[in-house]
Design a protein around this nucleic acid. Structure first.
Lengths: 340, 340
DNA sequence: GCTTTTCACGTAAACGTTTACGACATATAG
DNA sequence: CTATATGTCGTAAACGTTTACGTGAAAAGC
């Protein structure tokens, strides 16, 4: 591995001149530039980013913390981040904090020691401990997720209440009234459950506790389990809003076993719109989140913050409903009993 | 951000002593150790990895090149890599070489400039250009993938011929004889198509060109398209080996539209055994690849190479068949015409 | 009690860059 | 022709560590 000194020697100039040429600043003749460039090519010299970083205080590297690696959801975000980051000349170090806990702190320390230029934290919420740490790190941090707001730090998120509202409104527009929901079990009040409730109220449908069920996860298995539970609790529903695609697929499987046809007996609208939404039978009508774009935006924000040194605004991304085959119209006449 | 000097000053010792304590070497009294540790804690000093790397020639960072980010397949591999890497104290930089091409070269350069300790390259094959470059980088490189062998570099792979053989053998064991395949269209001879053919031959079933179809991709859409094509070319098959889960799901969708029931009319065995295999209806019987473990193994190999300085052996990972619901037994009596 | 070993440190060079400063030569202005 | 500006370069300090080497004191050996 050659250093700038080797190049300088070979080109018969000082290292300062080589440096100037490499960083193309001014202060040299065309003649010497040629010589130096030739030497660089011949030795195929690559500047040492460590030495550069040491003096410039820029590593052109950001860290991404994401829980539950495997999740397709996080992957889309990560993809967006990586894409944008590399466009801006940033490398990304991934830290998968699988079992949320002590590991995260370790990762933050590593990122700090490596002097990353910024950090993106994916996840529902930010523990106080982590917040304190990143604050002391004094690098740009942006939050990327779907759940709680932490307005002490810039974030890119979606409005879960509005999303749930849209989803349920869509079902209502299709003629459904007895609408179930598989929500996520949180400590505090659930934004999505809120939106669900609000949509019902705004359309003069009375809220029925039995029609909402709280899952402990977002996976396929949770879908089959909690859909069964939902149908047990509220057998008369004609539609359901399910807060992840995987769960929705699980619900379809469960429905299949229960002899319930989707969408003929019960319509399903899901959340996220990942690849799998397009692969199930029937294809899922879903609220689509611009995950890739969210990742890009997060990367853009850290980049901006790195450049300007001042905190960025938070962004709330728009969602949209993409209609496929898991929701069907319920004619007013048949609303009573029959399937559509 | 405090440096070792600040700590030294605060503890009234030299920076050398601080360094020794931080790296816990010998050469100081318990007394001074206490003092220094106290100073470190008070300033919450974190050593600068750049400066360390500069002098130690170790960055404790590896790079991972992976094409087609989005793919769940690559994600499993990446997950394994990340897991093991962090266990060994290595950070991982991801480089998604989406559009295979010029981007890869850029990434390699970046990794080189950042002086990563090792590189893992995920992908079917290694272009000559990249090979030359990584050779010049003179860092441990391991190949991770499923396709071609490149025995100039250590790799972790699976034996695709054996896998195809197993898959087809499994179908034969279940009583099938007219077996189709959706293979991947490659320039050279396909290992998987080879295994398919061999399994037939070994069981005295004549190979029929019409029963094999070559896809240009591995995605859902390819599955629906090429399954349709397959059924047009060879309407009499009772089973098919399809080389990706997503394609298999696509095939089921296509079958559904064609009025073909899986597995009653045609059985399907797929490849990879990703999460989606468990989520389709019917659940897919599949050849399971230990992707996570493959990732771990790859990371382990680079780590080993970093430590010892000598190249590692290549590994071929074992596969297994996990039986679910997409393959059914064909009784000898009914082999002629009826479904099972 | 004197030499030798051991221990606890400090000094300074090195890692590979960037960059402020100064030196010298040439061009420009008066 | 002198004074000044401009352009091309080199020297050396700095970034934050690690580590070889040296120093002095205390401990050990005789």
């Amino acid at each position: 591995m050659h250093t700038i000194k080797d190049v300088a020697k070979k080109a018969n100039v000082s290292i300062a001149t080589v440096s100037r040429i490499v960083n193309n600043q001014s202060g040299y003749s065309e003649e010497t530039k040629r010589k130096v460039l030739a030497a660089i090519k011949e030795l195929n010299y690559q500047p040492n980013a460590l030495a550069r970083g040491l003096i410039n205080k820029r590593t052109h590297t950001i860290g991404v913390l994401l829980p539950h690696f495997i999740n397709a959801f996080g992957m889309e975000l990560l993809h967006g981040i990586e894409e944008k980051a590399h466009e801006e000349g940033l490398s990304v170090i991934i830290c998968s904090t699988d079992s949320f806990g002590a590991k995260t702190m370790k990762y933050l320390q590593v990122l700090n020691e490596k002097r990353v230029d910024g950090v993106i934290i994916i996840g529902p919420k930010l523990e106080e401990e982590y917040y304190d740490y990143v604050k002391r790190m004094a690098v740009p941090v942006v939050l990327l997720g779907t759940e709680k707001f932490d307005n002490r730090l810039p974030s890119v998120q979606v409005d879960n209440r509005a999303i749930a509202y849209s989803a349920v409104k869509h079902l209502i527009d299709k003629g459904h009234e007895r609408i179930g929901m598989i929500a996520f079990h949180e400590n505090g009040p659930s934004l999505r459950a809120d939106g669900y409730r609000k949509a019902l109220e705004d359309n003069d449908i009375i809220f029925n506790q039995e029609r909402i069920v709280f899952s402990s996860g977002f996976a396929f298995e949770d879908g089959v389990h909690f859909f069964r539970k939902l149908m047990l609790q509220a057998p008369d529903i004609t539609a359901a809003y399910i807060i992840s695609d995987e769960m929705a697929v699980g619900a379809i499987t469960a429905a299949d076993r229960l002899g319930i046809k989707v969408p003929h007996d019960v319509s399903i609208i899901s959340h996220d719109n990942l690849r799998v939404a397009d692969m199930s039978i029937p294809k899922l009508t879903a609220v689509s989140l611009p995950l890739r774009r969210m990742g890009r935006t997060a990367a853009e924000k850290v980049f901006q913050m790195i450049q300007t040194g001042r905190p960025s605004e938070s962004s709330i991304m728009q969602h949209e409903i993409v209609e496929r085959d898991s929701v069907c119209m319920l004619a007013k006449a048949v609303r009573a009993k029959q399937p559509c």
